[in-house]
């Protein structure tokens, strides 16, 4: 378990992106989304690399990935999340990622969230590049486990 930020030694094969394992999402902040300890660092990076390789991105260019377990999807987060969201760092800084809860969290009535749960186009793209099945897309779109 990372207690300090640590960068993966290799870069993604498509875009040459760097990747940072952040302490915040590896047990350093209990209020933050957290990777399961069973997910090895190389596995976490492989999800990121595949997201980049398959260009599974939302309208902002943020990347999304899943971890297949045979015909099923693995839970990657401590709250049973199955989708990882990866966001770019500042200019010249590496990307980082975390398990993404597929349902929007409650918020105050006067502040609608422009982005929260992954956009539909993300799941459509995942089907297109055969990361998930059509039924799994329907499940994830509804906020359910797949």
């Amino acid at each position: 378990m990372a207690v300090h930020d640590a960068e993966h030694p290799t870069r993604t094969r498509r875009s040459d992106y760097r990747y940072l394992f952040t302490a915040r999402h590896h047990g350093g902040d209990k209020s933050a989304a957290m990777w399961r300890t069973e997910i090895a660092r190389d596995t976490e990076f492989s999800i990121f690399d595949m997201a980049d390789f398959r260009e599974v991105a939302d309208s902002r260019g943020w990347l999304y990935g899943v971890l297949a377990d045979g015909d099923d999807l693995s839970e990657i987060g401590t709250c049973d999340e199955q989708v990882a969201e990866f966001q770019p760092g500042a200019e010249g800084e590496p990307w980082h990622g975390y398990p993404k809860w597929v349902v929007n969290k409650l918020g105050p009535a006067n502040r609608r969230k422009p982005h929260c749960c992954p956009e539909k186009q993300v799941f459509d793209r995942m089907v297109h590049v055969t990361l998930i099945t059509t039924v799994q897309r329907k499940r994830l779109l509804a906020g359910r486990h797949a």
Partner: peptide
């Protein structure tokens, strides 16, 4: 309500909507 739900059922006595939110 700005926040997602995973399902909704009706509580039979109170009539309230019951929504699991993870």
């Amino acid at each position: 309500i700005d926040g997602g739900g995973l399902d909704v059922v009706v509580a039979p006595r109170s009539g309230y909507f019951v929504v699991p939110i993870g």
